[in-house]
Design a protein around this nucleic acid. Structure first.
Lengths: 334, 334
DNA sequence: ATAAAATTGATTGACGTACCTCAAATTTAA
DNA sequence: TTAAATTTGAGGTACGTCAATCAATTTTAT
């Protein structure tokens, strides 16, 4: 009924408990022969370490940090809420999560947050700056497992990325945009920042598919909305006033402004945005927004914790890829 | 550093360990006053039970059963593979999963499988038959937690459903079908079985949106493909020969046959199918299939285990809804 | 053969919780 | 007031693993 224990292994290997322990936790000082015997016994009995007992014995507590931009609206708010929801169930399993909010544009602040960290693993959603990457390297060297969340730092020493494949997301957006739009016309792409990697990757994927398959549609030069509703509203209004827009691909935040501008536009463009927030949900419902490409925040948090645990346990192959699935919401499946 | 224990609670409540234990595990025989003191101490210290220690002490092993149709191809194969992959990591956490394959059409066999079950929770993917539901009720009454997987039994006593919202899936399929097809024309809907609830729900959602929003498109009467490639191929070929099809919504399995038939058809219909299998993936790649609506099997397995654990631990509100997200794959994001 | 080194066994005490017993203290009922 | 019932405390054992000590045994080098 209950699986074999170290005692059973010792018995079938015909060695003492101490020797089994020495082999299992490779403490050294064991002869080749004895080691073989123990390993054979493990295989024979099908012994699997009881993780709970092991962690209890060594008083292990998993300490995970999440470094995310502060913010009480939109996507980040969803992420924080998901983290908060997970917290209580995680405490019972000896997983303590600490959430460290940082200013989204303050690189120095992010570095500072990383500097005095006391934990087993960190999930960071930060700027792709040299200083941040260096700090990641330092953490890794200090034995801290590091993963990136939502925004990747591919040049750094991070061990996993939990979030979208942003190039694929951009390609998907283009695919749908192209199929929704039979006729020719002009499309506006509005990013949060043209220097942010994730936004750039989405742009890249979008452009490529458009060029490959929908050449009858014209792409206007991408503009920067700074993830700010006011700016976005103004940019979209201006663009729509200058010419009839048939499509808008909004890559960053600030959908509140986008929705306002689209409502005031003379012709209704096909509008594709990112992240399912209350604003974009409402936009879908009232027809202002046609498609929302979303990365599920709960799934991201759950996946992040799982992967961080696997990493701290040195489990090599995790079932989780870290790739958060791209969820596509239309009016019909919100 | 390390959280408060029962000892700390006893100390701050100024009662003995035994009393704390009696309160925490409500064994009765405690005065109102003492109970209050203990509860206050719990709140004050922020005590949270160490689940691992508790389970170790009572020698708890979670035993979960998965009752799924046997099959080594297509969707079920993916599901089984995902289960197999999870197994090893779960063993370490004292979660034993047993996979019980049943014949998809053999109700008696499914009931038999449910009858002599020895576990804490079951996830079943079974027929919606009276006998199965009764067996679920019996299990629930015997204290076994029951969840349904992929195919729901909403009339039964199951406590959660892990899988798609099939009506929403059908609606989504229709939404895309309608938008992809500007012109009028005839659409073929092919289900596995017209009496299977999940297939029926997809049909229902599909029909409703078509009727509400895309009346220029004509729906042919739904046909039954029995989840069998040969049958599907024949049905589609016949339908396509009789008239030009502009769209096909394939609800069940048998996509191998569908792909063959579509390739031989004179006009290429917009084709939407369910489940991302090697076949449908290839279909997407070569352009035979336009869209795949998929429920991720790994995610389903992970969610199922999580929910089953929450249920056996009597955790009321789980973060998991059990609703597996509908992933939409086009050529651009496979 | 002897000393030194390496290996092994036996044992013990945590870790935090569950569960049990038995005696002591307190409250309630008669 | 006494007896009975209830409540409380003290203590122990167990779960499976880790980590350590110390003595005993074996192997290796000299």
């Amino acid at each position: 009924m209950n699986g074999p224990t170290v005692h059973d292994v010792a018995k079938t290997a015909q060695v003492s408990l101490a020797t089994v322990d020495r082999v299992l936790n490779n403490r050294g000082g064991v002869s080749k022969k004895a080691e073989e015997k123990v390993k054979a016994a493990v295989a024979q009995t099908g012994y699997v370490r009881n993780l709970a007992a092991a962690n209890l014995s060594r008083r292990r507590v998993y300490r995970f940090c999440f470094i995310v931009p502060s913010g009480d609206t939109g996507f980040v708010a969803l992420l924080l809420a998901a983290l908060e929801r997970e917290r209580s169930r995680l405490v019972e399993e000896q997983i303590l999560i600490q959430i460290i909010p940082t200013n989204a544009f303050d690189v120095a602040g992010q570095v500072a947050a990383l500097r005095d960290l006391e934990c087993d693993a960190v999930a960071i959603m930060a700027s792709e700056a040299r200083e941040v990457q260096d700090e990641v390297s330092r953490l890794r060297a200090a034995g801290v497992r590091v993963v990136t969340l939502v925004a990747d730092l591919p040049q750094s020493d991070r061990e996993a990325y939990i979030g979208l494949d942003n190039v694929a997301a951009g390609r998907t957006a283009a695919e749908f945009m192209g199929r929704f739009l039979g006729d020719s016309g002009e499309i506006l792409m509005i990013a949060g920042s043209l220097s942010a990697r994730d936004h750039n990757e989405r742009l890249m994927g979008f452009r490529r598919v458009m060029q490959e398959r929908f050449q009858h549609l014209t792409l206007l030069p991408a503009v920067e909305g700074n993830d700010d509703a006011k700016t976005v509203e103004q940019l979209v209004s201006e663009a729509a006033a200058a010419r009839p827009l048939v499509g808008i691909y909004a890559i960053g935040a600030g959908n509140r402004g986008l929705v306002r501008a689209v409502k005031n536009a003379e012709t209704k463009p096909v509008t594709i945005v990112h992240e399912l927030t209350p604003t974009s949900r409402q936009g879908l419902r009232d027809g202002t927004i046609d498609l929302v490409l979303d990365q599920d925040t709960s799934a991201a948090v759950v996946a992040a914790v799982r992967i961080m645990r696997d990493l701290t346990e040195r489990r090599e192959q995790s079932v989780d890829t870290g790739k958060i699935r791209l969820n596509i919401y239309s009016r019909e499946n919100i």
